[in-house]
Design a protein around this nucleic acid. Sequence first.
DNA 1: GGGACAGTTATCATATATGACAACCACGCA
DNA 2: TGCGTGGTTGTCATATATGATAACTGTCCC
Lengths: 73, 73
Amino acid sequence: MNEQQLFIRIGSNIREMREERGMTQQDLAARCNMEKSNISRIEAGRTNLTARSAWKISQALGVKLGALFEVDF
Amino acid sequence: MNEQQLFIRIGSNIREMREERGMTQQDLAARCNMEKSNISRIEAGRTNLTARSAWKISQALGVKLGALFEVDF
DNA sequence: GGGACAGTTATCATATATGACAACCACGCA
DNA sequence: TGCGTGGTTGTCATATATGATAACTGTCCC
């Protein structure tokens, strides 16, 4: 797995959990105090997100931090 | 849990797994192609590490990416 | 004392994540 | 047609992660 695939996989995890909860990107951004453009970039795997951002997202989704990072080894 | 505690917890996870494997920070840095000073900052929780760095570290330690982020919710 | 090793800390330059904001696209609906 | 909503993309400024490097501390052993 290369780096780009990693980001895409993390972003897909986030998107999946967000949609399961019936939230829009705007909803999630508001709960995270983050920009919706940033959420979009993260979900699309276009950015190398930080632990801080991941943490805020995990809190907003009500999941464990590690859940965002479950990718095939 | 605040942000600083989060970083410290992640750093402690990394340190613990590194030491379990009998590696020095220098060893880990070399396997990650990262600076040893950076490893030191990350383990001490003084930096908001990125997914890329976490990924390289997890590969070098031979653990799943999510394992680095196992923190109390 | 002195050398080797592990880790920490400081500084500087560079790359980039994010915030802030705007424009845009696609879609559904009235 | 037009409007609202969800998402994407672009730009700019700022903050900061990291690389590169060096100096420093503490420890262990000769």
